[in-house]
Design a protein around this nucleic acid. Sequence first.
DNA 1: CAAAATCTGAGGTACGTCAATCAGATGTAT
DNA 2: ATACATCTGATTGACGTACCTCAGATTTTG
Lengths: 345, 345
Amino acid sequence: MGRPTVTDIAREAGVSLATVDRVLNARPGVRDKTIAAVNDAIARLGYVRDMAAANLARGRNSRVAILLPDTQSQFVDTLHDAIGQEATLASAARMQVELVRYPGANMHVLAAILSDLVAGGISGVALMAPETPVVRDALRSVNAAGVPVVAMVSDLPNSGAAHYVGIDGYAAGRTAGLLMGRFLGAQTPRVMVIAQSMLLRDSIERRRGFDAVMLRDFPGIEVGQTLESHGAPEILQQVMREALSSSGPIGGIYLLGSGHRALAQVLSEMGLLGRVVTIGHELTPHTIAALQAGWLDAVIAQNVGHLARSTLRVLQAKVDQQPINESQERLRLEIILRENLPLTP
Amino acid sequence: MGRPTVTDIAREAGVSLATVDRVLNARPGVRDKTIAAVNDAIARLGYVRDMAAANLARGRNSRVAILLPDTQSQFVDTLHDAIGQEATLASAARMQVELVRYPGANMHVLAAILSDLVAGGISGVALMAPETPVVRDALRSVNAAGVPVVAMVSDLPNSGAAHYVGIDGYAAGRTAGLLMGRFLGAQTPRVMVIAQSMLLRDSIERRRGFDAVMLRDFPGIEVGQTLESHGAPEILQQVMREALSSSGPIGGIYLLGSGHRALAQVLSEMGLLGRVVTIGHELTPHTIAALQAGWLDAVIAQNVGHLARSTLRVLQAKVDQQPINESQERLRLEIILRENLPLTP
DNA sequence: CAAAATCTGAGGTACGTCAATCAGATGTAT
DNA sequence: ATACATCTGATTGACGTACCTCAGATTTTG
């Protein structure tokens, strides 16, 4: 005997196939008592719906959109590529993926794109965006239209996101802090924290986690204020010079977001490359090269392949109104050192 | 227009549905020229076979077996549970999983089980086992019967395994070495390496990787010979006493396999708990507790959930004679510290 | 050139589910 | 009691593919 089918349930519950179908698909026209009887039978037989057959029968070709900022960032580019790769595979599961880049500086455009997508009958939306009031309001109306929203990389807890796919920013910062403290060992120098900007929620959380561990476990190490580079090497150089001139030597640098190339340049000009413990985020061609070169000591990353797959799986589950396998979708925080770099195919 | 179907191909190639079917399923009775014409049409239309519908039509309920040793090991237990969990999910994909524990000390029994499974018409086999001659011969005859074999955790390169699911033992050892060196910092004490036994391939590879990095990057640190505990705390205690009495203080301990509980006991009795840098392998209740307690500094692990899912996916792909998404199946080597412990669900 | 072998077409049933229809059955208000 | 609304059963045709049969066409072989 194979798996039980709807026919088995109908027999077991003593109702017709049509009724089972109505219960399974939450269609109206069934008494509560009958619904209970069917659900009982389902539980007794351990029935699991054959989603493949269901989708086949539905002939439903759901359309979902994934929105990424068009920021000049290798991480976002890598993520874009990863999603593109998985999207072709997702089409086998009757899901068509639209990958859209929106101007990272203008949330009003993002809001407009979202309302267009909803008007166009999109079935689900995933996006990586900061939680500004404009975005929040836009997402609320997406939600109101019954379209599930999945937050990527940076959570959107107050916008009614159905799910968050990404790592815990606070834990990422704590891990960076622990590594920084352990790598510095007996030394207790100053540590610099550098960000492109502190607007994104995950940067803030990382900083918080970093500070928490440094304060608790390595009180001898002095951590400076966050230096914001806004992506420009010149500004970074300037603020670093200022920070350096203020007092004592720098022993460690924690890079909250992107900007590894700029940092390498500045460090190199200052003769510090490879002489300070440096910890960064996200695995990109730049950070991989930096790890191999030896001047970057550790990278805290999230696996973009998993991120992409998880996003698509969650989207599909939400669209199909299916439950989510939480343990499968929980992204692990990865620590990458020189010796456990992924093979580069 | 949705995706092209077999009917579209038949029209495009100017042949009948039956012929397309014969070509798709490599059934005999089609001229080479016709085969080429059909394949042309497939390429032109960008047809991708709907595996869901295909399996549905086949009604095939493949049966696969997963063989784990019955060793007293929390890692194997955790893996067992993870596979069990995923197996219920896999049944949705028409795959029935038989989870078998074989006596870890007797490879002849494993060989007998394998031949029984093959005789019983199993479609695929995955196993975690050392590559002894008995095992190798048994697997070769499994292969000869056309049943794909997937190696788990420890590779079986000379037994014709169709795929290996697990982390790179050499890289794992290198990573442990790097962490050990960095955590020890300026100190250059002696480091002990402890294993339950050096029979398993992955223990040997880890040790090789560890030595490679220590020798290259931390030449000041002296690494002792591998102490084998054979799972008994008494033996471990004895060999540790001997090692300690020989010369100088111990600064670090690298635990190649299981035995964290025994080590904790011995270290605690010797008043060394928390005073030596300790690095171990695999995430289990014991190692999690040890990380939280603070005496274990790092764990190199493979995600058992991913391992289980990957094994089942690879098995299914092999059984269906489908290609494998290599990048999805490549298990990442995880570094777990106190601050990035997974949330306990 | 006929017989045999090989190839191809046409058509059907099945897989598990969805979605729709129509005909009864039961219950509820007037 | 009649009309009506609400529930339920039985049946059917998709969805895309597999696999089977049988008949007819084409090629190869003797």
